[in-house]
Design a protein around this nucleic acid. Structure first.
Lengths: 225, 225
DNA sequence: GTTACACACATTGTCAACAATCCTGAAGAC
DNA sequence: GTCTTCAGGATTGTTGACAATGTGTGTAAC
């Protein structure tokens, strides 16, 4: 009798639409589609070997994340983020990461403290060696670690969504000369505050840090990048 | 040649899916569907006179807003928000509304100042008269006015989304005895800071206020509501 | 009486075709 | 030469049907 031979080796429960959504998001984030570029459903359908229905659902999801814009009867385009919007987004990130840093200062245990200190040391080394790419990676790891320590699911989600909207700006920022030298002491102050279990200081330090990111964004725009 | 963009502001036809989404959101917010309740696509399709595809898209949107949860092959249910989640959400609202209040303190003009003062006076009158329902309405109007003064689109959007996830809690909160008396001076402090164009004080006052909302949430939960 | 299995029903997931809409470019009038 | 008008093509919006999956129920074995 037919029992259960219909289950192939791979028991993947990921839906095609989630797959297409992630693939498309990656493509946008990696810069294959530039801001303002039209995303034609038929083309994407071909590109990702998915039906147009699937592509459409994926686009709707990404529109919810603010990565693309959908206009009725006019299709989807990669969202263009103006300087003003980038500043707004970073302002929101500033207060959210401040909240998260404060909470990390409350929750951090010994092992996590060691990890934080290690990243701090590596950052200092990277700046000394002038390895800006490596510093940029460490920067991401530091912020991610702090969020994971804080375990604030709601804030974490929103920060992630906002971050995705700014990948392009963020990437260019890391190329701005002198950026690592500016932010290193700020990062060290955040780490010190968390290690000292001082929530208000951790929040203030993090806000200071991201506030300087906003300055850098404005600088970058003034330079015409 | 001027780089003007043609923006046909008023001629935007609403799509069926947006219509269905808003109708369904209203229904959930009004309590017609309770947390944990299943949202069967065919039923909703009948209820809102929309195709199943339309209903499905609307559900996806609402899932993005955190109002419903969709499980693969198991359909959608109204999302149940635990106390811990409600606290997290309100914490995020706290820092965001703090940001918005600070910005309102920078931007408020004379006319808006008058409007703020008026709402403050009406709040005081409502508390004196024991009209808690009226106070609750004024509360919403005050926060909305502050956000409109700040004109911080990014923060405004997120606050709106978060607020929708907590309507049920928010509603019960307003019934908590003694709540208006507690929050009235907090509201007055926020208003005064904005009128004085004092951003740090406005942010601190707003955070204080919402922090007390978190306390009230915990109280409510302890009382078994 | 309890457990395990298989079948039927209910519900969601996906697809391809059709209808509605918008943009492009050329032709004609002034 | 410039503006308006009007097809033609391309793209999106919507619908209904069909396939895949999950859930509940009834029956038989222990």
């Amino acid at each position: 009798m037919p029992a259960e031979q219909s289950v192939p080796s791979a028991r993947q429960e990921i839906s095609p639409i989630a797959e297409a959504r992630d693939a498309l998001r990656e493509a946008i984030l990696r810069g294959e589609y530039l801001p303002g570029e039209r995303l034609v459903e038929a083309q994407l359908s071909e590109r990702f070997r998915a039906s147009r229905f699937t592509v459409r659902s994926a686009l709707q999801d990404l529109a919810g994340d603010g990565l693309v814009e959908m206009q009725r009867n006019r299709g989807a385009v990669v969202r263009k983020v103006s300087l003003a919007e980038a500043v707004e987004i970073t302002e929101v990130r500033m207060v959210l990461e401040g909240l998260v840093a404060a909470r990390a200062a409350v929750r951090a245990d010994a092992a996590q403290g060691v990890e934080l200190a290690e990243i701090g040391a590596q950052m200092r080394a990277a700046v000394a060696a002038g390895e800006s790419r490596r510093y940029s990676d460490l920067n991401q790891r530091l912020h991610a670690l702090i969020r994971s320590i804080a375990a604030h699911h709601t804030a974490d989600d929103i920060i992630g969504t906002l971050h995705a909207q700014l990948v392009r700006h963020q990437f260019m920022l890391s190329l701005l000369p002198g950026r690592p030298e500016t932010s290193l002491p700020q990062h060290e102050r955040v780490i010190a505050a968390i290690l000292a279990h001082d929530p208000p200081e951790a929040e203030a330090a993090m806000r200071d840090h991201i506030s300087s990111v906003i300055d850098a964004l404005r600088t970058m725009d003034a330079l015409g990048l």
